[in-house]
Design a binder for these strands. Sequence first.
DNA 1: GCCTTTCGTTTACAATTGTCAACAGAACAG
DNA 2: CTGTTCTGTTGACAATTGTAAACGAAAGGC
Lengths: 143, 143
Amino acid sequence: MDETKVAEISPAEWEVMRIVWTKNGAYSRDLIDMLQDKRQWSASTVKTLLRRLVNKGMLETTREDRRFKYNATVSESTAMNTTAEQLFDNLCAMKRGTTLLDLVANTTLSQGDIAALQAKLAEKAKSAPEHIECDCLPDDCEC
Amino acid sequence: MDETKVAEISPAEWEVMRIVWTKNGAYSRDLIDMLQDKRQWSASTVKTLLRRLVNKGMLETTREDRRFKYNATVSESTAMNTTAEQLFDNLCAMKRGTTLLDLVANTTLSQGDIAALQAKLAEKAKSAPEHIECDCLPDDCEC
DNA sequence: GCCTTTCGTTTACAATTGTCAACAGAACAG
DNA sequence: CTGTTCTGTTGACAATTGTAAACGAAAGGC
């Protein structure tokens, strides 16, 4: 849908983006009200986050009367996947599986999520390697 | 093993920690050599990262002769899990499953990883809810 | 015993992030 | 028309992060 580069989104910015995605676009008033409610942020704080997200190209604005409508430029799933993958890049290749296991164990998943994961795993099992190499050290790794 | 608080670890710091974990402790010389090799970082950069990790309580030092041996204060899996869970905290509860699916699809997993994930999923399937609520908006959510 | 190498410590500096206050222009109320 | 209210723009400031130079003490080489 959009192969646009997803900039790094800070936790505070995520909070803003989530509302924009969920409501499929929002006005600063909406965001200020909701985040004041949810996070006790001042109006200024929300405005700053909006400005930064626009600068990062994560949000785009359309003037409507006197105010702006803020819309996301990338889909929520794209952003989530990109961010999750970036985090996994930091982890040892050999141990990503156990981290996934921990996430699966600690995340509330719906029946549908579980079914989808099971299907994907069954598919991957057909060609998965027996063992994965650690990539923490420059060349050789005797871990 | 260690329920110590895991501080936020930046990507550059992760790179250092990975080596310390993999080698089960290391000297600054080892780290400088390897990271110069792997990331082209200057010796100073590595030293700064070590200092910061010690300040954050992620590494502890033991004097050996003239130099220090750096050891991790938390296990690699604890750190990885904590960080992954922190990231998931930023994501909409309703959509974490699809992010996990993306990760599973894009991560190279071993046969053992897959088997463990399948077992865990089968277990969770027994009590998983049909649907999960979005938690992006303050109270009500009509997403 | 000096000079050089090796470590760790201090200092630096720009960019990003979390949090806001202050200000300016437009719209609205009276 | 004039003061109040909205909304967006600027400026701020401390903490964190990426990157690194400079300095000081100790060890080893010759």
